[in-house]
């Protein structure tokens, strides 16, 4: 099971990287969202796959019995939420870029690299 999940997680990450390398910013955004998902699955393996029992103390018990690793779950929960915030934030940026430039092609969204007199720009790209 562990190997299967590792393959799945890494496979998702591979697909995500492939999408991130696209020049369409929305595609890149979706890739980054996928990247977070794949990462979370890999993180889950840090706590190992074993018990299917959730880490919830039964009524009446004082301590937790055999269960999945709670620490890894807490980390992933934090990571999910952070990944969500980052993805949406990037979405807002892409929307802004679209509104100001009318394009979501990364090659045309290049205002940041074009600073200084035109002469210099020609030098840089020519």
């Amino acid at each position: 099971m562990t190997i299967l999940y590792a393959l799945t997680g890494a496979g998702i990450i591979g697909c995500a990287i492939f999408m991130i390398l696209s020049r369409n910013l929305v595609r890149m955004l979706l890739g980054l969202s996928l990247l977070a998902t794949g990462t979370n699955l890999l993180l889950f393996l840090a706590g190992r796959i074993g018990s299917e029992q959730p880490p919830i103390i039964r009524d009446g018990a004082k301590a937790l019995g055999v269960s999945a690793d709670p620490v890894a779950q807490a980390l992933i929960l934090t990571a999910i939420v952070i990944g969500f915030a980052l993805t949406v934030m990037l979405g807002v940026l892409v929307l802004r870029a679209w509104r100001s430039g009318g394009t979501v092609d990364a090659r045309e969204v290049d205002a940041a690299e074009m600073v200084g007199p035109a002469q210099e720009r020609d030098d840089l790209h020519g």
């Binding site: 910013l25 990247l35 952070i82 980052l86 870029a97 940041a112 074009m114």
Partner: peptide, 24 residues
């Protein structure tokens, strides 16, 4: 400003990759 948005997208793309590497 458009240059800021563009710079931020570049920054964010790099930083999110970095975050993934660090997190793993």
């Amino acid at each position: 400003r458009p240059a800021q948005i563009d710079g931020a997208i570049r920054y964010a793309a790099f930083a999110m990759l970095a975050a993934t590497f660090i997190l793993i």
